[in-house]
């Protein structure tokens, strides 16, 4: 693992599997009476949220607390923070407080990268979503969920077919998922109207299509991206109704999917828009499980970034105890 998690591209196949395997072991804890582990005792994790996201913040907070880290929540939205300088000042403040890791959500693409490379802070930086760039822990929890349902909870996602539908242009979830799923061997098809594909998408490690119906029959997983209503006013699509008709997943479309195929959504959903209400609540919908898996995956990320010595990327020597060279 690198010292920061800024992009899914930071994870090679071994790193990604290490996170998923670690998350799988940690997920077993959720059934225990005592859910807490002492691993990050004395470490400080700061949740630095420049953009509202109660769900993601709570998920990271639960993850850090289950590892016994001290958690400081810094919500910058609504305070005097509106532009630039404050990121630097906030970072310097956090450094003075001794943050071991900063989990950052920011409306500006690249803000986590700047935080990690500016020299403002010394700890690890975890990208919890930056602008229209990336959201790597969301991709990890999505991969974790797919692996449970489609690969027996082990190994990679070689050959699994994943259809991701919606506003790819503005979606950090899509970017992170495409990179990670490709690393794990899945075959991803992005489906969107042409206006909602970024320039250069043909160079991404995935296929693209304008037609949803032709990518449901052989899909192992179908992921709907949230539609941002304000996009409708910028001439990306003519109307919500037309988008819903062409790219929304309703019961009729869902019935063309294979029996084993799952339905996913990073949330929060617009029921009746990109996803019909009865689809969201269908047995094959794993949307609620995605949320639960988010905590395990984020625990794994925090543990792997903070649990060991900082820096260094040697092969973890799990046999120390056996060979008697502990301590």
């Amino acid at each position: 693992m690198k010292r920061h998690l800024l992009s899914s591209a930071d994870l090679d196949r071994d790193d990604a599997l290490l996170v998923l395997d670690t998350a799988a072991e940690l997920a077993a804890l959720t059934g225990r009476t005592v859910k807490k582990l002492p691993t990050l005792r004395g470490r400080t994790v700061v949740n630095l949220f420049f953009e509202d996201s109660t769900r993601t913040r709570i998920s990271f907070e639960a993850a850090a607390k289950r590892l016994s880290a001290d958690v400081i929540n810094f919500s910058a939205k609504g305070s005097s923070v509106s532009k630039g300088e404050s990121l630097k000042d906030t970072a310097l403040t956090l450094e003075a407080m001794g943050a071991d890791a900063v989990v950052i959500r920011h409306a500006a693409s690249g803000a986590p990268h700047q935080l990690a490379h500016s020299g403002w802070i010394g700890g690890s930086v975890v990208n919890a979503g930056d602008g229209t760039h990336e959201h790597p822990t969301q991709a990890l929890l999505d991969a974790f969920t797919m692996r449970r349902h489609l690969a027996g909870g082990k190994g990679d996602l070689e050959g699994r077919k994943v259809t991701i539908v919606g506003d790819v242009l503005h979606s950090r979830v899509a970017r992170s998922n495409v990179l990670l799923l490709a690393t794990l061997g899945a075959e991803v098809t992005l489906v969107a109207p042409p206006t909602l594909f970024p320039v250069g998408v043909e160079t991404w490690p995935c296929a693209t299509s304008y037609d949803l119906d032709s990518h449901l029959r052989d899909a192992d997983a179908v992921m709907l991206l949230r539609v941002q209503l304000e996009r409708m006013n910028a001439a990306f699509v003519p109307s919500v109704r037309e988008y819903s008709r062409r790219y929304g997943l309703d019961k009729q479309r869902m019935s063309t999917m294979p029996d084993h195929a799952i339905v996913m959504h990073p949330g929060p959903m617009n029921r009746g828009m990109e996803i019909a209400s009865d689809v969201a609540d269908a047995p094959r919908s794993v949307i609620v499980e995605q949320v639960a898996n988010g905590v395990s995956v984020r625990m794994a990320v925090l543990y792997l970034l903070l649990g060991g010595a900082q820096l260094g990327t040697g092969e973890p020597d799990t046999d120390d105890a056996d060979t008697g060279v502990e301590a």
């Binding site: 970017r175 970024p198 320039v199 250069g200």
Partner: peptide
């Protein structure tokens, strides 16, 4: 925010075509 092209798509920065 930057030149529109493959890189702007990857970096998530709005393109200047």
């Amino acid at each position: 925010q930057m030149n529109e092209g493959v890189l702007s798509g990857i970096l998530g920065l709005r393109g200047w075509p």
